[in-house]
């Protein structure tokens, strides 16, 4: 901490290169459909880029480790928020199945899309009716 770290220009250029490369990767993977992994891949690449910026451009790698701890802690809190919220949205309908997926499937936003069941598989409206889950559909 006491001595000031001076990063060589080479490192900066290498980091910039990596960032450009990862941007290209982001664009490239957007042409493929990985289903539910789309978001995970996109966020993964973005997280990698953000970490590189924080570690090298913002000097967290050479700074007092307390700063890194603070930074990681903030990510940890974000992690807590997202994971625990998923305990709600991922497990709805455990007791009353009618509340499992009503919001998204009935949203006007989704009207243009084919009707799907909870796993994203297309269903035709008549079979859904037989299960009594489709009363509100218009």
């Amino acid at each position: 901490m006491s001595e000031h770290h001076i990063t060589p220009l080479k490192t900066y250029l290498a980091v910039a290169g990596t960032l450009f490369f990862l941007t290209a990767v982001t664009v490239w993977v957007s042409y493929f459909d990985f289903g539910s992994f789309n978001i995970i891949i996109a966020m993964g690449v973005a997280t990698m880029k953000a970490s590189i910026v924080a570690l090298f451009f913002m000097h967290l790698l050479w700074d007092d480790k307390k700063n890194l701890t603070m930074f990681v802690m903030s990510l940890m809190f974000l992690g807590i928020f997202i994971t625990v919220t998923l305990l709600d949205t991922g497990f709805r309908g455990g007791v009353n199945s009618e509340v499992e997926y009503p919001i998204n499937n009935r949203a006007t936003f989704y009207d243009s899309l084919p009707l799907t069941d909870t796993h994203g598989h297309p269903v035709d409206e008549h079979s859904a009716d037989q299960h009594g889950e489709d009363e509100d559909h218009h």
Partner: peptide, 21 residues
Amino acid sequence: GFLVWGHHMFTSGQSVFSQIV
């Protein structure tokens, strides 16, 4: 204090699993 916020939401329609947690 960061892990208990859902106890304000027991009647909100959140999943039974997260209610228990």
